[in-house]
Amino acid sequence: MHENLLSTIQSCVIIPTYNNEKTLERVILKTLIYTSDVIIVNDGSTDSTPEILQKFSQLHQIHFPKNQGKGMALRAGFKEALKLGYQNTITIDSDGQHFPEDFEVFVNEIKENGEALLIGDRNMEQEGIPGKSSFGNRISTFWYWFETGNKLRDTQSGFRLYPIKQMENLKYFTRKFEFEIEVIVKAAWAGIPVKNVPIQVLYDESERVSHFRPFKDFTRISILNTYLVLITLLYIKPRDYFRKFQEKGFKRFFLEDLLHSEDSNLKKSLSVALGVFIGIAPLWGFQTVIVLFLAYVLRLNKLIAFAFSNVSIPPMIPLIIYASLSIGNFFLGTPKLNKFQWNAIESYKEYITTHLAEYFVGSLILASVSAVLFGLISYLVLGIRSKKTQKIHSI
């Protein structure tokens, strides 16, 4: 491997370090075999790290007076790399578990398949991997999949390639280990491909120093994932489904997602029914979150359910509110409605406020009946179409 290989993708190497005096010099020397474009971030080390780094004064160095956390070290490294004109950067831990020889794996992947955020896959099933690391990785990969829809094998490896130029406008709020979760989720949300590439790994417990504090760091990670899940349900999923629906248009959505989806007719029909029920039910402001959550729990088609939950589009709102109030009046035996002003939004608010019980009961009944009707009609239509398709293929 030539020393200028990393320069072919305009990349440098960032080495964040905190009290890894046993392995730091070895990691730097091995890295220098492959590139001299190195940024070292000393995250407030209290051991002999400053003395070791004096031997490498030719390299770009950032020194924090106090420990701020790996996230802050990486963010400072990204900022410095952008200032120096790099498009990408590879991060490698200073505890000796990674092999600089694997730089070539990252570079080749970018050259062959284009820009992406690459995470080294340590093959967590191999011998020598600590059980707590393997378990933590499984939990992390699950939440990453839930938050992005993208499946990875390893989400916790610190050996990565970041397309920092593409990520320049992303905003972060985490400072420590959890940053490595936040950054890959937000990159995926921004449309940056996030992939695994195979790497080697060495766990030498006699040299390796772990700064992971189970209680504090798991708490931070849990808080972060709670935040990311809420953003996923409240904004990211609705945004993505809306964009997909908008790009396709109703006709293409109807033909591809409703008719040609690989899901069974029953599953599609139940998805339609769920969407219609949630769209009409008195769940204003939470319809998207609820429909996506229920579609996920019930294993229904999320895109179909989301699309039909938009049955309560603005032109339909007066009709839905009036029908709900009328049905509620009928079933509760309350006096008939006074004159209803269809074009006045204040009229909706007034009637719903003064006839809340009627509206609540009526909207649930209307939602249930509509869901059953839409579900049955879609099931019959899909069934008829399936029979026609079978006849055509049998000819």
Rank of each mutant, 00 (worst) to 15 (best):
L300P: 11
I192W: 04
A371H: 02
G71R: 06
A371N: 01
A76V: 08
R385N: 15
A323F: 12
I52E: 02
V369M: 08
S264L: 03
I92W: 04
F242T: 14
F330I: 12
S157E: 07
A307Y: 12
I199R: 09
G383A: 05
T17H: 01
I52C: 09
D217W: 06
W189K: 11
Y86C: 10
A357K: 15
T17N: 05
A273I: 05
S36L: 08
S309M: 03
V38K: 03
D47A: 07
F250P: 05
S394N: 05
I352L: 08
F330W: 13
G191W: 01
K216T: 06
L332G: 00
L266F: 08
T288A: 15
A273W: 02
V291C: 05
S312N: 09
V107K: 05
D121C: 04
H63M: 04
A188Q: 15
P314D: 02
L325R: 01
L228M: 11
A81W: 00
F212C: 06
P315S: 02
T35V: 01
L117Y: 14
G285Y: 04
E147V: 14
Y241I: 07
K267A: 10
S363T: 10
K171W: 09
Q126P: 11
A307C: 09
G96T: 02
L224N: 01
